[in-house]
């Protein structure tokens, strides 16, 4: 023992040394570090769990959004379709109205033209009568005397009046 340098007091001192360092390291190193590691482990697990949840939520929202989008698209298509239909109807209506209006305008124009024609015809007729009277006057003055002229004229006027009356009755 002596040759190996073993001494009970030194041995005991080293045992005490080791026990001291063991207790100190347990207090200073292992406990806080292991607690910290455990805490971090928990935190990470929680974080992962949360991430998973978030991902699911995201998936759900995405699905919802997609559904909404699809529905919106469908709606839009429907609306366009409706609008087209309505437009066509309106067009048809407009065309029909235009047709009737055109017909009415044409009819009115026709009657107007007729009236104008009638008025012109009667005016021409009157003028022709006046002209005939003047011409007859001139001719008769040169051929007959005043008495005969008057008799003839009044006879002719009577004839004319009766003609006019007849004509008027006719028309």
């Amino acid at each position: 023992m002596e040759k190996l340098g073993i001494e009970p007091s030194l041995l005991l001192a080293q045992v005490v040394n080791f026990l001291v360092i063991m207790v100190v390291l347990q207090k200073l190193l292992y406990k806080p570090i292991l607690t910290m590691l455990e805490k971090r482990k928990k935190e990470i697990a929680e974080g992962l769990h949360l991430t998973q949840k978030m991902r699911e939520e995201e998936e759900r929202l995405k699905e919802k959004q997609e559904k909404a989008l699809a529905k919106a698209r469908e709606d839009a298509l429907q609306i366009i379709e409706d609008a087209k239909k309505q437009a066509k109807e309106t067009e048809k209506e407009l065309v029909a109205e235009a047709h009737t209006q055109a017909a009415a305008i044409i009819a009115r124009a026709k009657t107007e033209a007729e009236e104008t024609k009638n008025a012109a015809t009667s005016a021409i007729r009157r003028e022709a009568v006046d002209l005939a009277v003047v011409m007859a006057k001139r001719l008769l003055t040169s051929v007959m005397g005043v008495k005969e002229q008057h008799a003839l004229i009044s006879k002719r006027v009577k004839d004319l009046e009766s003609w006019v009356a007849r004509e008027e009755k006719k028309s």
Partner: peptide, 9 residues
């Protein structure tokens, strides 16, 4: 490198 230490351990 001392037997006291290793023996203690």
């Amino acid at each position: 490198a001392d037997l006291n230490m290793t023996l203690a351990l």
